[in-house]
Amino acid sequence: MDFSRIYDSIPYILEGIPVMFQVVLVSALLGITLGVVVATFKIVPNRLVNFIGHAYTAVFRGTPLILQLAIIHFGLPQLTGYITTPYQSAVIAFSLNSAAYISEIIRAGIQAVDKGQWEASDALGVPYVKQLRSIILPQAFKNILPALVNEMITLTKESALVSTVGVLDIMRRAQIVGGQKAIYFEPLLFAGVIYFTIVMVLTYLGQRLEKRLRKSDGR
């Protein structure tokens, strides 16, 4: 092992960090927005709408993310005639995919709120939207937030898949350096260290957040 041979390529690989965060943050925002919509589909009292929500989740959880990404990047242009850039394809695939997982997190968070909270607010005559907004969601939030942080961590790790459609993220850059210098172990190990560090930092932040939420429970 000889890391001195990739010294000059380290800045090049590090430039993949902002690229990765761009994909992850934009996908997370879009994924949460769409996830809220899909979660709402799952809980409203209408069977057809419920079905659409569940079918959406089933499709995106039931197929590999790398396949979804490939279909969107390589397959869809064949139908639409519109060619998306690697970055656009990556964001579309990751948003749609994470929305499926996030909608489950939100649905479970809402349904984990004690049934008595619905009944108590029903008995007071509180209308549905206010009930959801002022009584149920604030309590569901505590169940949702830690799981959401986990989903962000997963998204960060899985983002390495965007290298397969040519986004110049950490993973792709490490492979390019490997190809140029004909040594793979060092750049890939370096990429691994970067991912690991980022995930550890996110995990730590997530734990602190969870602790603070738990503290506020004991008010």
Partner: peptide, 30 residues
């Protein structure tokens, strides 16, 4: 239901609201 008060076995107070807010939420919002 606004005219029918109900008290539950498990209390079902709103845990994220103070006692005052528990008592004023429905009168103000409903």
């Amino acid at each position: 239901r606004q005219n029918i008060g109900m008290v539950f076995q498990q209390f079902n107070l709103f845990p994220h609201m103070s006692v005052l807010d528990n008592l004023t939420y429905a009168p103000i919002n409903v």
